[in-house]
Design a protein around this nucleic acid. Structure first.
Length: 470
RNA sequence: GGUCCCAUCGUCUAGCGGUCUAGGACGCCGGCCUCUCACGCCGGUAACACGGGUUCGAGUCCCGUUGGGACUACCA
């Protein structure tokens, strides 16, 4: 039992919001760490100062918190770790594993184009490799990588991957302005944090051998790698903004429960037999890299909606009310009573796929209604006037508005008029909600309460009367 | 172009050589329930990319073809 503690990390670069793909990578790292009782580190890769922003950092952190992906260490900021990187660069320089190169960007660009034209691989030709150049203002530092041999690693999801070293060139570790490049920063940080498992998108597969070469040059142990297949948009191209909602926070605004997103993300690329729904606890217990698939997948919004609907149905009314109130407020409701919100949401739980949809469906409980044109024309007609008037009388006399009570009143009422419920239900529904579609009328009447029901029914009656003309 | 990765219903996937006339979920289509819409329940639709091997036996292993994708920067 003296195996090293598992340490994973999630290293977003703050050039935008956290999107679905990043969130899944974070989730898998988080699950893997928790499954192994390990640690999960958050690191912000903000070395590209021009493209990084504070807003992006904030929104990434907000997204992580909303999803419930908490970290044990960090966030570290690469922009604040120059000293550490320089120390590692120094190590490479003094062991002759790295060297200065003063080839100008223009020169390199020219050679690249030339090589391409001749059908060769456009890689650095190693011009300065053996020159023993010293530090100079416009010199970069390059890794002296092996010219032959094979670099191979066992990927925990893809299997053995190998590449000939001659395919790789001497990559730049430090730029001429003294800042360190991505590969160097990543490797240094991962070593410093004691990362044991690097779980990331498979767009990094080609980066892995380069990074392994840096580990080797440093004489440091190589972590285990697991490359996750990418998430695609519906057109099978890599997920991007033009596919609509990709940012995690957008899903929050659309009224998704964080757990629904988590569950859905977990199932994208990972499976546990036929099981579709998992609690967080189950995910942690069952998650394993060898059940992660190798092929990329399309994010399925329909399935997310279905899962979200299921979780809404199962949710505790009190919690759901808390989540729903902000949506109602956004839609212009104020002075919301928690109890009434709970009542309203009970009527809508089975028919809402998102919190937003639920809030929209609940508006008639909290705001004045307008009759939808079609509904008005079809159901608030003179033919039902007498029936509604009589119904109003019965409702005024109701001792209580509990559902069973209402059902009793109605069955007597229907009996008396020798009609079916269908006959009054729709006109009444329109009178109470303005629409032809709503939760069951007994349910909504109970939640609305006698006063509101009587008021709306009376309004509808005068509305019908006004149609008959003066 | 070069290198690397990938390939089961429309989509997410199960499958780790025989139990697969390929299972589940979402979607879609019927039906039941019913005060509308949902929920729920019942039923249906639909896939192993192609071609060669290996094997008594291949969705499962190997090779190739085709098709996707990634990388190929003093971006990350």
């Amino acid at each position: 039992m003296n195996k090293k503690q598992v340490v994973t990390r999630f290293p977003p670069s703050p050039t935008g919001t956290l999107h679905i793909g990043g969130a899944r990578t974070a989730l898998f790292n988080w699950l893997f760490a928790l499954h192994h009782n390990g640690k999960f580190v958050l690191r912000i890769e903000d070395t590209d100062r021009a493209r990084s922003s504070k807003e992006a950092i904030d929104s990434i952190i907000e997204s992580m918190k909303w999803l419930g992906l908490d970290w044990d260490e960090g966030p570290y900021f690469q922009s604040q770790r120059a000293e550490i990187y320089n120390e590692f660069i120094e190590r490479l320089l003094s062991s002759k594993k790295a060297y200065y190169c003063n080839c100008s960007p223009d020169e390199l660009e020219r050679k690249r184009i030339e090589a391409k034209e001749r059908g060769l691989k456009p890689k650095y030709d190693g011009k300065c490799r053996e020159l023993g150049l010293g530090k100079s203002p416009d010199a970069v530092i390059r890794l002296k990588s092996p010219l032959s041999g094979t670099t191979r690693f066992k990927d925990l999801v893809k299997g053995v991957i190998s590449i000939e070293n001659e395919q790789l060139d001497d990559l730049i570790l430090q730029r001429s302005d003294g800042s360190v490049t991505y590969h160097m920063a990543v490797v240094t940080d991962d070593i410093k944090s004691g990362i044991t498992h690097v779980i990331r998108g498979d767009d990094h597969i080609n980066n892995t051998p380069r990074q392994i070469l840096i580990y080797n040059a440093l004489g440091e142990p190589i972590p285990q790698y697991a490359h996750l297949p990418m998430i695609l948009g519906p057109d099978k191209s890599p997920l991007s903004k033009r596919h609509g909602a990709t940012s995690v926070l957008a899903y929050k605004e659309m009224g998704f429960l964080p757990h629904a997103l988590v569950n859905s993300l977990a199932r994208l690329g990972w499976a546990y037999g036929d099981q579709e729904k998992f609690t967080v606890q189950e995910l942690i217990e069952l998650f394993s890299l060898d059940h992660v698939g190798k092929s990329s997948g399309i994010f399925n919004m329909e399935k997310l909606l279905d899962l979200n609907a299921k979780y809404i149905r199962e949710a505790d009314d009190g919690n759901l009310a808390e989540l729903l109130i902000p949506f109602l407020t956004n839609l212009g409701c104020s002075n919301l009573s928690r109890e009434k919100v709970k009542g309203a949401l009970r009527t809508l739980k089975a028919r809402s796929k998102t919190l937003l949809e639920m809030a929209q469906g609940a508006l008639f409980f909290f705001k004045e209604i307008d009759y939808e044109k079609q509904a008005d024309e079809r159901f608030l007609i003179p033919e039902v006037l007498e029936i509604l008037k009589d119904l109003l009388l019965d409702l005024k006399g109701a001792p209580s508005f509990a559902q069973e009570q209402l059902e009793n009143i109605f069955s007597i009422f229907l009996e008396r008029h020798q009609i079916k419920l269908g006959k009054v239900a729709q006109p009444l529904r329109v009178a109470l909600t303005g629409k032809t579609v709503s939760p069951g009328i007994f349910e909504i009447m109970e939640v609305m309460g006698q006063e509101m029901v009587i008021k709306r029914l009376s309004n509808a009656i005068s509305h019908i009367k006004s149609k008959k003309g003066p």
